[in-house]
């Protein structure tokens, strides 16, 4: 696959995405739009498209960074407790600091996500038994445990259905005024791009990086901060999108290899393309209703992940 193909697909899908929905709006209306159509486009469709693009790019890149840092292909925000820790943080923010602004809530959630990811990565560092498959297993369990703590508080406060509904990845409610937080990701992604090589070296281990004159701790922390921030921003605006950060970098590796400078662009583009496809599928399947993106990505993502796992076995055995 070439970059231009991905770009073409992205443009095509973006345009498609703009003109699908319950409200009638087709590409031929473009030059003769009614006020209402114009409103639909600017208030709902474009914000939705933008947030999908940013979320797709950011989650895939976050996954890639984590995989570089841990040198394990199966680590991602979903399989390292980041998502779940962020969820707990949001709940805490809602319960304890009910009157906090969105920004403050985000900061609290960010602190939790960062702490969760950090604990997991530290644990990986020390763990004696480094079976590639064992790591995501621990990570998913780790997430489950953080979740059980979330449930404890949610149950006591009768908020389970609430928490469930607004953390489910969904793009249908996105409109102007409710997605701008996502823009925080953009500078972070640029930063990640510039730092890419350092992440790779840091992933080789502390001694290796020190030998090459790299401040290991600092680089790892920068990586984790980017991952945690990006995940929190996406969860707060769209919700949890499982497995995205896991499968995209893995697919890219299959056809471009592991050269980070090269795979980074592919990962970003493919992440956006994949998320757009999932969103469009979710919008069409039970048209005019919608299947939330969390479900479509969850199902498609699990299947792809399983395929990757199976493939890996076949390759090794």
């Amino acid at each position: 696959m070439k970059v231009w193909m991905l770009v073409a697909a992205l443009v095509l899908l973006s345009v498609t995405s703009l003109f699908i929905g319950a409200e009638n709006l087709s590409i031929t209306d473009l030059f003769s739009m009614t006020d209402r159509q114009w409103q639909v486009l600017t208030i709902s469709r474009i914000p939705r498209l933008v947030s999908l693009l940013i979320a797709g790019v950011s989650m895939s890149i976050a996954g890639l960074i984590m995989q570089q840092l841990s040198r394990n292909k199966f680590v991602s925000p979903t399989t390292a407790g980041t998502d779940d820790a962020a969820k707990l943080g949001i709940l805490v923010a809602l319960l304890v600091f009910a009157s906090a602004t969105t920004m403050q809530k985000m900061l609290i959630a960010f602190a939790f996500a960062l702490a969760g990811t950090y604990v997991f990565m530290k644990f990986l560092d020390r763990i004696k038994f480094k079976d590639t498959i064992f790591i995501p297993l621990v990570g998913l369990m780790f997430g489950g445990i953080i979740n059980s703590i979330t449930t404890f508080f949610a149950y006591k406060n009768d908020m389970i259905q609430n928490v469930t509904s607004w953390l489910q990845g969904s793009t249908s409610a996105i409109m102007t005024g409710r997605y701008e937080l996502l823009y925080i990701s953009v500078p972070l992604l640029i930063f990640a791009y510039l730092y890419a090589n350092k992440f790779t070296i840091a992933g080789m281990g502390e001694e290796f990086s020190v030998n090459l004159g790299l401040n290991h701790k600092f680089v790892v922390n920068v990586g984790l901060i980017i991952v945690a921030l990006v995940s929190v921003v996406v969860i707060l605006t769209i919700g949890i999108i499982p497995f995205l950060g896991l499968i995209i970098p893995n697919i890219v590796t299959l056809y471009v290899g592991d050269n980070l400078k090269k795979s980074l662009i592919h990962t970003a583009l493919l992440g956006a393309v994949f998320l757009l496809v999932c969103d469009i599928v979710g919008r069409l399947i039970i048209y005019p209703y919608e299947i939330p993106i969390g479900l479509t990505v969850g199902v498609i993502g699990s299947i792809v992940f399983l395929y990757l796992l199976m493939r890996r076995r076949a390759y090794e055995a």
Binding site: T78, L140, T164, F243, I291, G294, L295, G298, S302
Partner: peptide
């Protein structure tokens, strides 16, 4: 996790 996604959807 996949079952979880579907459950969430219905819930």
């Amino acid at each position: 996790t996949m079952f979880g996604s579907m459950t969430t959807f219905m819930q």
